[in-house]
Design a protein around this nucleic acid. Structure first.
Lengths: 233, 233
DNA sequence: AATGATTTTATGTATGTACATAATAACCCT
DNA sequence: AGGGTTATTATGTACATACATAAAATCATT
């Protein structure tokens, strides 16, 4: 009986994953080197490399030059979360999206905000408060500060019909940022907008984006009670 | 003046990102094909391919055969969250990790659990309740159900000194799973264990893992108030 | 035994060529 | 003009080869 042909990197990857899951290669084990595997699988080393590299990216293998490739002892699960526009998120579920601007003003931000955006405390910034609705029900409150020094054109936009999220995506590029997930008790204002009890447990996403060294925006999304963020593992 | 040399895929990637951020290639734009870019950059097409593929994986480019590569109109930010062991999470912050088993019993799970794990309602499962501590302060409550049909050896483990998380990682492989983040109000028991007020807003992670078609475990992690899950964007 | 230089080795990547594949564009026939 | 077939094209990937690089292992020197 001839050995089966593992001629493309996906097939090789599947076989590697099978061996790991079947514990033929146990956690901590050093697996054969690429050249040997290539010979065994009847393919080029580049193909094995692509497969192993992909598996390593998922956290199941640890690779080091000269030391070789070993099965991760404590595979760190990597959950990738797609952060799309709230509008898309709602429409993807077949619901009707609604947007409502609550307030828009140029004002001095609280110290916490000016600090996070690394902007002088006396600099006025654009502050937006808005409500996102799904099938006419409150879905999330958006509380946003925009650095008008970085995005001066923002002051010319009313944000009555387009959310800060959407406008910025189209008009203000960013190079990097950070995002934080947490739980909080709904404030009076949040409870009023979301139509939920005061102090209700709400899911919160805080995001801060930068264009190189210049801060762009800081946004806090407060979701109606019961909201879940889910993803495959 | 000679053109600068973009001789490796990382450099090519940086240049591609630069052009996107500088809006030389605007959202929606079709960018030159790989062969042309390879010529421009003075490298092989495979190098350009690797660079573009990597950028596309981050969501900034959309690639389609024959249609070509274009800058994503609405770049979906992809946040990758590393889900490591709670012990590692705490130790990585230089804090002392503590673990305390609250209860361990074989019992019939509530319908919600047996349903999620796709196990008959009358099947008894291993139920664990435990507390994770950071510097002796409550950090998170772990509420776990283990499918003993899939992981029979779990009934021989006392879990007095090792958390379900850690034991399963070493003893029960999984092929896939799902994870959900949400906010909840602390129950009486959770509030007692975490030392927080009843109904306090707590951050919750629910995880469900499978080994092929067989469910392995369902775990709910309830974090002490104030907990944040943060990652780069 | 400790230190430093050197060799070895497994992964990492660049290249040119070849072919596969998907999706669009062009064409042809009625 | 419509509908179906064929050609074209950009990405996707396999392969053999070559060299780069990091890190472990070995050897040489003190």
């Amino acid at each position: 009986m001839n050995r089966p042909a593992f001629r493309n990197w996906q097939t090789v990857q599947e076989e590697v994953l099978r061996r790991i899951h079947a514990r033929e290669w146990k956690p901590g084990d050093l697996i054969p080197n690429e050249a040997d595997l290539a010979e065994e699988f009847g393919c080029a080393r580049a193909t094995v490399n692509r497969a192993l590299r992909t598996v390593a990216e998922s956290g199941l293998l640890d690779r080091r030059r000269k030391a070789g490739t070993r099965v991760a002892l404590q595979p760190v699960a990597k959950a990738t979360i797609d952060i799309s526009l709230i509008r898309q998120e709602i429409e993807a579920r077949g619901q009707k999206y609604g947007y409502q601007l609550i307030s828009r003003s140029l004002q001095e931000p609280p110290a916490q905000v000016s600090g996070a955006l690394q902007v002088p405390m006396t600099t006025r910034m654009l502050h937006l408060s808005a409500l996102h609705l799904a099938n006419d029900a409150p879905y999330a409150v958006e509380d946003r500060w925009i650095n008008t020094a970085t995005v001066p054109t923002a002051v010319n936009e009313g944000f009555e019909t387009i959310s800060g999220n959407e406008w910025l995506l189209a008009n203000a590029p960013y190079t990097h940022g950070e995002i934080a997930f947490s739980a909080a008790a709904a404030t009076k204002e949040e409870a009023r907008l979301l139509g939920c009890p005061l102090q209700a447990a709400v899911f919160v996403i805080d995001r801060l984006t930068w264009d190189h060294a210049a801060s762009v925006t800081k946004v806090r999304l407060i979701f109606a009670p019961g909201h879940q963020l889910r993803t495959a593992l």
